[in-house]
Design a protein around this nucleic acid. Structure first.
Lengths: 334, 334
DNA sequence: TTGGCCATCCAAACCGCTTTGGATTTGGCT
DNA sequence: AGCCAAATCCAAAGCGGTTTGGATGGCCAA
């Protein structure tokens, strides 16, 4: 070959100051020798780490669940398409801040994604101080205008779902929500309450729950409510997994889902929990979290490419899809 | 301060050639200035990338499921405890090999974990050629002795589960397995068949399925089999998610799980699908995949620390836990 | 006092790339 | 032929650490 390091670098990185012929030869050689530039060296030289960080607290709750993985998968596709790496840090809850600080001070990533914002979110303040670009999956209450985020319209989705149930004649509607200190759950609850209020009804606290969205959570609460007096005729559930539990609970009570008791669930379109077919099992509000991951990544990469740009966000509406789990409210026996 | 770069480096990295007093001052200053060594530079200088790679094909199948996330979470804990980063690459199935090659040639990671080995696995050959340390989550048929791996005893778990059902009087047992081109599913099937053979029975192909372990997969096949002639009285299922589907299917047929029809499922101890309590919902073979992740990471880090060491592996037995979903075979009506 | 030996600390080389600022060659035009 | 701009290519200076091979100074035995 006999070419300088400079030329090889330029050839490989697509700079124009190199003839097509030379570029071809370099590429060929590199290919033949299995050469690829050492990424640490390149990162050091360019000052960009070409990686996006995701900090996930170890605690077993909402976060550490399949929804998160699906999001990650979506984001990961976008990253690799743009030559970025994805860095996951699993940390003790107590060390979450440290993790962000380290990413910033050691330059481990060019940006991060904030997962699962809470009502009293603070991470964005730290990241701003650290000057680390970020995108929020969800929204930070009170910081919507000054941050980039991607979120579905949780309030509206649950408002529409509730309205559908009301239209079907249901008035005793239970809400099995996620943890309401999380922003998304908080909004969903508001949508639920708004819809009820729109019909002059008000939510019955006895029919509302807020917890980690496991399967047993759905089942146990469904059974408890159905066996109580003045039971609900419909359930609005925050996740497919819990909805499956609710369906099980309904079955345990000797009732039929979609006939005696209706269910609407939010469906994140998880690959292992398909809820499709001509008539899906569950009536649902659906929004692909994988797609959200892709878009969040795009937003973040754009921010990194142009740090002067204004914050950009994406607000998506969930589809309301009719499945087998809803029907008219049963006529009151009395 | 007025200390040389050398001294600072040594102080921070715990070398002995620096006085306690100086070390203290350096640490204090670093802390105060929020200084931490740039990781790219350090990596370049040391030649170690201090990261472990996980390549996950984008395809939506077994892999891209919650089990994977739980494993990742376990591994991630170990990594961060040892100062390693976790690098995830989500790639097109067709580019999986490329991803490994890149990791090796660009020195993106010091080692990788192979997920979901198949019956005709080849990745380990590539990695050996690339001289990239790796640990297999699962086992590679025919390469058990020459690779490091961590796996549960799939065959034995399913053999024991089958024997339990046989002891309860079940003879028509259905197997809803994962994709049998995957090693783990293959072994589970063997366990099932071995147990039957041990009693002079043989598996009925009409009662065996192999597919992605979704919820509907469980439900649909349960219904189909139960409505067919000569229906099974018990189901052996490869995942909790499908087992939930099976339970739903049983309900749809107007039957009672644990009474009319028994279920034993494998339980990976996923956080969002707890199957515990005094008497768990499902009788199961249980093995924590999160723990497997921790151990796999430890194995890999040890390999990296001492490249001359012989391959080490960990073979874990699953617990067989009695829950509510099993009971004696119903007496045959005839 | 003097030499020797630690305990400390430091200057400089190096890790493998990108990028800057020239140097050299080529080719078109007058 | 002579000149200039464009096209190529290259040497060397970083990037921010770690590591090597001494220097320096203090302390103790001879």
């Amino acid at each position: 070959m006999n070419l300088s390091q400079t030329t090889v670098s330029r050839a490989l990185n697509g700079y124009p100051e190199v003839s097509a012929e030379t570029r071809r030869r370099v590429a060929e050689m590199a290919d033949q020798l299995g050469y690829a530039p050492n990424s640490q060296a390149r990162r050091l030289a360019t000052g960009r780490s070409m990686a996006i960080g995701h900090v996930i607290p170890r605690s077993i709750h909402e976060m550490m669940n399949p929804i998160f993985l699906e999001f990650i998968a979506g984001a990961g596709e976008t990253y690799s398409r743009h030559g970025y790496d994805m860095m996951l840090s699993v940390v003790d809850d107590a060390h979450e801040e440290d993790a962000y600080r380290q990413i910033a001070s050691r330059k481990k990533a060019d940006g991060v994604i904030i997962h699962g914002p809470a009502n009293d979110e603070r991470r964005h303040l730290l990241l701003k101080k650290l000057n680390l670009p970020f995108v929020v999956h969800g929204r930070i209450p009170g910081a919507e205008a000054e941050t980039s985020w991607i979120d579905m319209n949780n309030r509206r989705a649950f408002e529409r779902a509730t309205n559908l149930l009301l239209d079907l004649g249901h008035t005793r509607i239970a809400l099995l929500n996620g943890l309401e200190h999380m922003d998304f759950a908080h909004r969903r609850r508001r949508g639920f309450e708004d819809a009820l209020a729109g019909r002059g009804l008000s939510a019955d606290p006895a029919l509302m729950r807020s917890a980690d969205m496991t399967e047993p959570y759905g089942c146990e609460n469904a059974v408890a409510m159905l066996k109580g007096d003045n039971p609900p005729t419909a359930f609005l559930v925050s996740s497919m997994i819990s909805a499956i539990g609710v369906a099980r609970g309904i079955g345990q009570c000797g009732l039929k889902t979609g006939k005696d008791v209706s269910i609407i669930t939010h469906d994140d379109a998880l690959s292992f929990l398909p809820n499709c077919g001509e008539v899906p099992i569950f009536t649902c509000t659906r929004s692909s979290v994988r797609y959200a991951g892709q878009k969040a990544a795009e937003l973040l990469l754009a921010m990194i490419a142009d740090p002067t740009a204004k914050p950009a966000s994406l607000h998506m509406d969930a589809e309301l899809i009719i499945g087998q789990s809803t029907g008219p409210a049963p006529v009151r026996e009395s």
